[in-house]
Structure formats: structure tokens, C-alpha cells
Amino acid sequence: MSSPTPSASENPDWEKIAADPDFAALKKAKLRFIIPASIFFFVYYMTLPVMVGFYPDFMKTPVLGKVNIAYLFALSQFIMTWTVCALYVRVAKRWDIMNAELLAKYVSH
């Protein structure tokens, strides 16, 4: 397999990029979404088994016809997952722009 040798980006100065305030800003922007979003989805999800395990009678309460709280809460997890996913895609577009601007300083095309 022939791998064409990239010219300018052969040996980027990792330390220099890591110390660039724009890199710090990118990393901060990512973590500012990722940390709260992870905590949120984890807590929201784990509430389901905790409630089902420890408060089964409450979870069995029918709310919509025969459909009970347990099933509705489980269904809401699907909607929660897709929503967090969509939000991630939206904020990630901004990271892509920040990333491109950062890399433009170090990689010549």
C-alpha cells in the first residue's frame, strides 16, 4: 500500500498547539457541553432502574389508559437520547469551525 507523504503536517508542534489559547478554548467549549450532558443523561437514565427497582408499585400506576408510568418513562428515554444526540450535533458544528480555524494556523495546504 502506498501512502503519500503529507508535506507540511508531517511533524506538527504538538506542544505549541496545546498551549494555543484557541486550543484551550476549543477544549473548554467541548467540555462545557460534554460534562453536563453526560451527567444529565446518566442521571436521567439511571433514575429508571432505581425507580423500577425500589418503587415498583408507584411505577405500575396507569396514567394513559392502561399505559403506566414505568412504560412512559422508558419511552421518554428514547426521546431523551435523540434530543441529546441532536443537541450534540448542533454544538459540534461550532466546534468544527473553531477546530478548522485553529488548524489553519498550523497546517498549510
Binding site: 460534554i34 450532558a37 453526560s38 443523561f41 437514565y45 429508571l48 432502574p49 423500577v52 414505568a70 412504560y71 422508558a74 428515554q77 428514547f78 431523551m80 437520547t81 441529546v84 444526540c85 450534540y88
Partner: peptide, 21 residues
């Protein structure tokens, strides 16, 4: 019944761990 459906839910939500981290 429902206890089996818990697998369905967990299998999906797991993709947030994959996506975010």
C-alpha cells in the same frame, strides 16, 4: 414483559456514552 424492555432502553441510551465520550 417490561423487564425485557429494560434491555431495549439501555441498549439505546448507551449510544450517548459512545457519542459524547
Amino acid at each position: 414483559g417490561y423487564d425485557g424492555f429494560m434491555y431495549s432502553v439501555g441498549f439505546l441510551v448507551a449510544y450517548l456514552t459512545v457519542l459524547l465520550l
